Amino acid sequence: MAQIGIFFGTDSGTTRLIAKKIAKSIKARQGEGVAAKPMNVNRATAADLLAYRALILGTPTYGEGVLPGRDNGTDEAAWMEFLPQLAGQDFSGRRVALFGLGDQEKYPTHFCDALMDLYKLFGDAGAALIGGMATDGFEFRRSRAVQDGRFVGLALDQHLQHQLTDERIEAWLDAVLPLLLEVATAPEAESA
């Protein structure tokens, strides 16, 4: 089994594209089989996520700062439909790195807000969250996903700054990949 699980929620497919870019970069750095094939949460179960000690989770931010889901205007099931499965689940001993997509121009006061929803949810479930990044180079007015002056995960704007995406992914992976691999390959991970 792969060492790092990659899961995402999406409707338009852009978050899926980013998840694939992340998986491809991990493969180029670490070889085949380190990162699992990215999976949409609308096809996943809580047990699928719990099978990994290291997780990369992605979400776009819909409208005025919400996770994707049918109640929030998506055509397909996404994070909102998946979240009830996580009730009562314990993610202690797992490291989670988050990535999120937003639109600084259309939603400058809600840029990548949904990152914070995942951050709180998995943090409350016991996961160790890693992978915050500086807000430098972004032009937004407010974001719930900023804590202590940094995003709680990798923030991307495919609308206005798509040309920076690959560079941002690589810099983020430089920081998070060693931490994810550390927990994924620890002896206790094999017995869990």
Rank of each mutant, 00 (worst) to 15 (best):
F122G: 06
V66S: 15
D117P: 04
Q3V: 07
T45P: 00
I18R: 02
R168V: 07
A186E: 10
E182N: 03
V146C: 13
G149W: 03
A171D: 07
L49P: 05
G126F: 00
S12L: 15
I18A: 06
T74A: 13
F111M: 13
H110C: 10
L118C: 11
R70T: 13
V152G: 05
G13H: 05
G123R: 11
R94F: 01
A114G: 08
A54P: 15
V183P: 10
V66D: 15
K27R: 15
V66K: 15
E105F: 09
T15Q: 02
E188H: 11
V152K: 03
A145H: 06
A2R: 00
I26F: 02
E170Y: 12
L179K: 14
T10P: 02
A186S: 11
V34G: 06
D174A: 15
I56R: 00
Q30C: 14
M1S: 12
W79S: 01
F151A: 07
P178T: 07
I4N: 01
A127H: 10
V152P: 06
A35Q: 09
E190V: 11
F99R: 08
N40D: 14
I4A: 00
L50V: 00
D90F: 03
P68Q: 00
A192R: 10
F8Y: 13
Q89A: 11
K106V: 13
M1H: 03
L177M: 11
Q161G: 11
L179A: 15
S25K: 15
A2W: 04
K120I: 12
E105R: 10
N40G: 12
K27H: 13
H110E: 06
R29W: 04
D71I: 07
G33V: 04
L115Q: 07
A125K: 12
D136H: 04
I169M: 14
A114L: 05
E190S: 15
Q161W: 13
S92H: 04
F140W: 03
F151Q: 08
A127F: 01
K20Q: 14
M133T: 15
I6Y: 05
R29A: 07
T185W: 08
K106N: 14
